[in-house]
Amino acid sequence: MAEESPFKGQTGLRRLWNALGYSRAGLRAAYEAEDAFRQEVWLALVLIPLACVLATGGIERALLIGSVLLVLVVELINSAIEAAVDRVSLEHHPLAGRAKDVGSAAVLIALLNVLVVWVSVLLS
């Protein structure tokens, strides 16, 4: 049987505090190690305040900001997939390549979603 984390059984505020620490560490690791994530964070730092200025209502603001945050989420998942694949093996394998390509395609679709949402909201 696989060994589980000793923190798995914790509940309440301790669990939330631990989860916050793990999330912070993950964000830091992604920012330091992933050029694409770093670029997308800087893009978010420009687009999110811009969304607050350009949006005329709460729904528009939520759509604009949500589309940008979705890119960050998908990039984090893509980075996790790439790290896991590289951990297993650095040699070229068709399935490893497919996993990385599919993750990259997900990021592309999230970026296209930003474009479609922003154009749709700002031109309506």
Rank of each mutant, 00 (worst) to 15 (best):
S67F: 03
W118A: 03
R61S: 14
A80N: 11
M1P: 03
L45H: 06
G12W: 01
L50H: 03
A36N: 00
D86K: 07
P94L: 14
E34G: 04
L111G: 12
I65E: 08
L72H: 04
V121F: 00
N78E: 13
V46W: 01
A62T: 07
A51V: 03
L123K: 12
L64P: 12
E82D: 10
I48G: 02
L95M: 15
P6M: 04
A33S: 02
R87I: 00
A25I: 07
S23P: 00
S23G: 10
T11K: 07
S5T: 00
R87S: 11
S89F: 06
G9L: 02
G26M: 04
R28H: 03
V107K: 01
S5E: 03
L122G: 06
L20Q: 05
H93Y: 15
Q39H: 03
I48R: 10
S104A: 14
C52G: 14
S5W: 07
S79H: 09
V119Y: 10
G103T: 04
D86E: 08
A96N: 14
S79A: 11
L112W: 08
W42D: 06
L69R: 02
A44G: 07
A96L: 08
L115R: 10
V114Y: 14
L69Q: 01
G66H: 05
G66W: 05
Q39M: 03
L47V: 01
S120F: 00
V88P: 02
P6L: 02
L45R: 09
T11E: 05
R24H: 04
V53H: 04
L123F: 12
S124M: 08
A83T: 10
R98I: 01
V117T: 15
K8Y: 03
E91I: 09
P94C: 12
A19S: 07
G21E: 05
V85W: 08
W17K: 06
F37A: 00
H92W: 06
S89R: 09
W17L: 05
E32T: 01
D101C: 09
K100N: 08
L27A: 03
L54Y: 00
A62P: 05
R38T: 05
I77D: 08
T56H: 13
V116T: 13
G103H: 09
S23F: 02
A33M: 01
L64Q: 08
V117C: 10
V102L: 13
V73I: 03
H92K: 11
I59A: 15
L123T: 15
A106K: 09
A33W: 01
V114K: 14
G21R: 09
Y22K: 04
L122R: 11
A2K: 08
N113C: 14
E91S: 14
L112R: 14
P6G: 03
I109W: 15
R24I: 07
E91H: 09
K8P: 00
V71R: 04
E4T: 04
A30Q: 01
D86P: 07
A19D: 12
S104G: 11
V121R: 07
A36G: 00
R24L: 12
C52I: 08
L16G: 13
V68S: 03
I59M: 15
H92N: 11
L70M: 11
S5F: 06
L70V: 11
G26V: 02
V41T: 01
L123E: 13
N113T: 13
E40I: 11
I48E: 06
A80Q: 12
A83M: 09
S104R: 13
L108V: 15
N113L: 15
V74H: 07
